[in-house]
């Protein structure tokens, strides 16, 4: 029996995890761009409608040739376009709330503007998710069982890939003023939510999206290949990569108060976690 029909909700969760993963992988740098927040705050309504319309058209083209669900045809493409843009809207709303760029006290037109502007790259990422990462692809690049599997080797492979992916995104965002600006504007509740969101995205990209599941092929995965352990260990690596990137670009130093350093590291750890998760499924 078709797995979609046997487990419809599980399949749907995987499909949307894949779409959200693609959205975050593609759109995270622009979520950390202050000009994007500002443009959203003052963009005129007709421009927002036009932007949303163009986003729908761009996504229609992408979902016709790619998309994040199986199936082809214009009907499927239209449905996936609507879903991809909605994924972009929800993803941008969640991240902007957690980063304290929007709140219930803000004017509604400003909130909508910021969400719509950010949903453009995020929805395109959702539509491209299956092109960037082939669902079910093994981390080592083949689909057969890994005869050389060893827990420690797998651990170092994963953490190395996490560090490389984290550096890729981290060094492009660490030198910008947005990190200190975001860190200063977030309460500790926001920062706690950001840690939780980073862990959730790291887990979702690797273990729920269906992009990769090496451990499924291994009957007895090592202690570090279990989802929660690997997600947590990868987040610690992402924090270290974020701290190192900020230090090398002179954005933090050890004379600063610890809470200031920690805040900036937590903020940059979201992109480094996303980059690290991409690294783990790409390597």
């Amino acid at each position: 029996m078709d797995d979609t029909l046997a487990h419809p909700w599980r399949t749907e969760m995987t499909v949307f995890a894949r779409a959200f993963s693609g959205a975050f992988l593609f759109g995270i740098p622009l979520l950390f761009t202050m000009e994007m927040w500002w443009i959203g705050a003052y963009a005129e309504p007709w421009k927002l409608v036009l932007l949303l319309g163009l986003t729908l058209v761009a996504n229609l083209g992408l979902t016709y040739f790619s998309g994040f669900r199986p199936g082809h045809g214009w009907g499927q493409a239209v449905e996936q376009t609507i879903e991809a843009v909605s994924v972009g809207v929800v993803a941008s709303a969640v991240v902007l709330i957690v980063l304290n760029r929007i709140s219930v006290a803000d004017p509604l037109d400003s909130i909508l503007g910021k969400i719509i502007v950010q949903s453009v790259p995020l929805s395109i990422g959702a539509s491209l998710s299956s092109v960037v990462f082939s669902p079910g692809k093994d981390r080592q690049g083949d689909d057969g069982p890994d005869a050389d599997y060893h827990p420690w080797k797998a651990l170092f492979n994963d953490l190395g890939a996490t560090a490389i992916g984290g550096v890729f995104l981290g060094v492009s965002i660490a030198p910008t003023d947005e990190i200190v600006m975001l860190a200063a504007g977030m309460s500790w509740l926001h920062k706690a939510a950001l840690v939780a969101l980073s862990l959730l995205i790291g887990y979702g990209v690797v273990f729920v999206s269906g992009f990769d599941r090496t451990s499924m092929k291994v009957d007895n995965p090592g202690p570090f290949q279990r989802p929660l352990t690997e997600t947590t260990a990868a987040y610690v690596v992402s924090l270290l990569v974020a701290a190192l990137s900020l230090y090398l670009f002179d954005r933090i130093d050890f004379t600063e108060p610890f809470h200031s350093v920690m805040s900036q590291v937590i903020v940059l750890a979201l992109p480094t976690t996303v980059g690290g998760a991409a690294g783990r499924i790409a390597v």
Partner: peptide
């Protein structure tokens, strides 16, 4: 499937609300 209908309906609702709100502004 029912799950696909639910997610598609929620997605359509999100876009309708967005276009509606911008239209009002």
């Amino acid at each position: 499937t029912a799950a696909e209908w639910v997610t598609l309906s929620i997605s359509i609702a999100i876009l309708v609300i967005l276009f509606g709100a911008i239209g009002v502004f």
